[in-house]
Amino acid sequence: MVDLRLLAVLGQVFDDALPSLIRAALGGFALALSTGLLLVSVRIGSYAANPAFVAKMAILLTAGANALALRIAAKSPELRPILNTRQARLAGGLSIVLWVAAVFSGRWIAFL
Rank of each mutant, 00 (worst) to 15 (best):
L83A: 13
L38R: 06
A52V: 02
A58H: 12
S76E: 13
A30G: 09
L21W: 06
Y47M: 03
A65C: 11
N50S: 01
P51D: 02
N84H: 14
K75N: 12
A74M: 07
L112P: 13
A73C: 06
S105E: 13
G36E: 01
W99A: 04
L61S: 09
V103N: 05
D16T: 12
N50Q: 08
A49I: 01
R89C: 03
A24C: 07
L31V: 15
L60S: 06
W108T: 13
R43A: 10
L37V: 08
L31H: 03
V42F: 03
R71C: 07
R71D: 08
G92P: 05
V42Q: 03
A49N: 01
I59F: 01
V13E: 14
L68G: 08
W108P: 04
L61V: 07
G93S: 09
A67G: 02
A67E: 06
I109Q: 08
L94Y: 07
A91M: 08
G11F: 06
T35A: 00
V97M: 15
K75W: 06
L39Q: 09
W99V: 10
G92N: 05
G93W: 09
L21F: 10
G28E: 05
L83T: 12
G11N: 12
L83M: 15
F111K: 09
L83P: 10
L39D: 02
L79P: 02
G92S: 02
I22G: 00
T62W: 12
R80C: 04
L70T: 12
A102K: 13
R43I: 02
I109Y: 12
L90R: 08
L90T: 11
A110T: 09
S41R: 08
A69G: 15
Q87H: 10
R86A: 14
L37Y: 03
F53I: 00
N66E: 11
G28P: 05
G93K: 01
A32F: 07
A17V: 09
T62G: 03
L21T: 02
L33A: 11
G45Y: 06
G11C: 09
Q12L: 08
S95Y: 09
L21C: 00
G93R: 05
I72Q: 13
T35H: 00
V97Y: 14
A63W: 03
G93V: 08
T85D: 11
F14I: 15
D15S: 06
V54M: 07
F14N: 04
A69K: 12
D16K: 13
R86M: 11
A8N: 15
A74D: 04
P19Q: 11
